[in-house]
Design a protein around this nucleic acid. Structure first.
Lengths: 257, 257
DNA sequence: TTATGCCTTATTGTCGGACACTAAATGCAA
DNA sequence: TTGCATTTAGTGTCCGACAATAAGGCATAA
């Protein structure tokens, strides 16, 4: 994306895309990536060895390797074993990790996370109510039971709560929503650890909300599912307010490693 | 994330996290990343040269380089010039690119994009109405004028429309929303190119919606801004329906390169 | 036959050294 | 001080090499 630079010259805006170098390793990564995006290389395809790639591109193995390292961390290729190098579609958890890291480094606040979560979770619940299968609802019920059983074990409770919400998002069968909400929900819910001590009574409210959401799923009542999800997240916010965390920074270094 | 393997043995479920190797280059990337996340290295800090890093970690320069390439494409470090290697916070457009690529490769449908956009854009509008400065609204007005002037030039119209929405999101001062919606909006709006030919009359509706949104901003009326944003996106959907694109795959190879 | 263990071989991960090129630091002139 | 020339350190790329080992082939056992 071109960098925009607006100096005080009227409404003039100079956009200049930074000139890109032509480093060999970069070109190699670029070229292979292009072939993947173009569909010439499909997920699952195996790539030639490093040496062979070297001769194909007319560079040394060292150079090829640097390019591959980039593609690798881009998630476009991966090595099931050191010997196999195959094309793959970027994994969701990888994107989640990156986004989470970025948000942590940007020092986003709980408010920012919450504002977005306020729309994503209700949407997830609504979609789930529309698309969930009986079996999925059953599984969710199990998860809920586990969560009930985890009372007192903070870490476990949080992990299960995260899972609960992620599961709901998955039930909605919308991969875009799944991708978008995951890193956000992760950071936000993880903050629950800081809130919980301030508000023991919220635990019960959370449980109640979960129950009602599940019930709404059973009835295929998307309106109700959405409403309870919204209340659920609102509740969360009240907890954050009590804890005075509204504009606190939601960093979670461990959300990554 | 551990791979789950449930063979037909009752309800037994074996979970096994794939063992991870400890390649030197990977460890180096890992270590530096950890120091960044931990805050030992702050954005802007300059890192030692490759050779020096080599001796510090007790490996060859080649090995260091491979590690750096990873960090580089993770966006945690970058080179303003080949000589400077400094810590940086991941840039939004980098994440956008990633996510966009991933969604394209996942072959997400317009429906999936739209369902999410239906909640993100209204939220963006509401937040913008609350936080926008007079100057920002002024700039948005200019952008709108440019958009009006671009009638007929499909590519330009789309680009400006994208900008219009992104600008609104920025005005809401919520970086999380900005990060989450950008790749989605990009893919969706870019699909407008396919819709437009089917629905010339929609152009006017879009313009009208934009005008109303700006007006709502002027009045600081977040409700109205949100409502118009929602209608705006709904309109878009109707266009998609006319074009029969609801479950079409929204790939955008060029969204990347 | 199928399955199991062994062996060979192709590749990887890492190393060390080398060299051209150039950005940045340095010194010098104005 | 500012502007220019010069040195220098560090990057991008290449070459060659070697231990370790996963993959595939082969032989043996069940």
């Amino acid at each position: 994306m071109p960098a925009k630079l607006s100096a005080g010259y009227g409404t003039m805006t100079l956009t200049a895309k930074p000139i890109q170098h032509h480093y060999a390793y970069h070109q190699i990564a670029e070229e292979i990536q292009a072939q993947i995006l173009r569909g010439d290389l499909k997920p699952g395809d195996q790539l030639p060895g490093e040496a062979e790639l070297g001769v194909m591109f007319g560079v040394t193995r060292s150079t090829v390797r640097e390019g591959l390292r980039q593609l690798e961390s881009d998630g476009l290729v991966h090595r099931p074993s050191p010997r196999r190098l195959e094309v793959t579609v970027p994994q969701a958890d990888q994107l989640t990790t990156r986004a989470g890291r970025a948000m942590a480094l940007m020092k986003v606040t709980f408010r920012e996370l919450w504002e977005v979560t306020m729309v994503t979770e209700p949407l997830a619940a609504r979609l789930a109510a529309q698309h969930a299968t009986a079996e999925e609802i059953e599984q969710l019920q199990h998860l809920h039971a586990d969560l009930l059983a985890s009372e007192g074990q903070m870490a476990r409770t949080i992990a299960l709560d995260e899972q609960f919400h992620t599961r709901i998002a998955d039930m909605g069968k919308n991969r875009v929503l799944g991708l978008a909400r995951e890193p956000i929900a992760l950071l936000l819910f993880r903050g629950f650890a800081k809130i919980a001590p301030f508000a023991p009574q919220f635990y019960k409210r959370q449980i109640e909300a979960h129950s009602n959401i599940i019930a709404a799923f059973r009835d295929g009542d998307s309106e109700r599912a959405e409403k309870w999800a919204r209340m659920h997240i609102e509740d969360f916010w009240r907890g954050a307010q009590l804890a005075g965390l509204e504009d606190a920074i939601a960093l979670s270094p461990r959300a990554v490693t």
